[in-house]
Amino acid sequence: MAKKQVKTKKRIVLIYKPQGGSHKLKALLREEYFVEEKRPDGKFRRIPQNAGPYATQAEADEVARDYSRQHPDVEVRVVAEL
């Protein structure tokens, strides 16, 4: 007589389940670029337009270049936050 097969149920206690999938990872992994200007007190602050975040450095560079052209002798920089 064939032995009766006993099916065992796998019990998993799920403590934490990351939400979303690869699309969320893609969104998380995107670097964000911002444009900042040097204020008279020596500190860098986002340009008054508060533009950004930009998805690529090229986009942010373009904004920084235009802004620095319009504001002579003001140091403007592009920063990445990741």
């Binding site: 560079d61 920084a64 403007v76």
Partner: peptide
């Protein structure tokens, strides 16, 4: 994955890099 590191990537003066 978010906002843990801040890095300066370019600087501009008078429209020049």
């Amino acid at each position: 994955y978010r906002k843990n590191v801040k890095v300066e990537v370019s600087r501009w003066v008078n429209g020049e890099k």
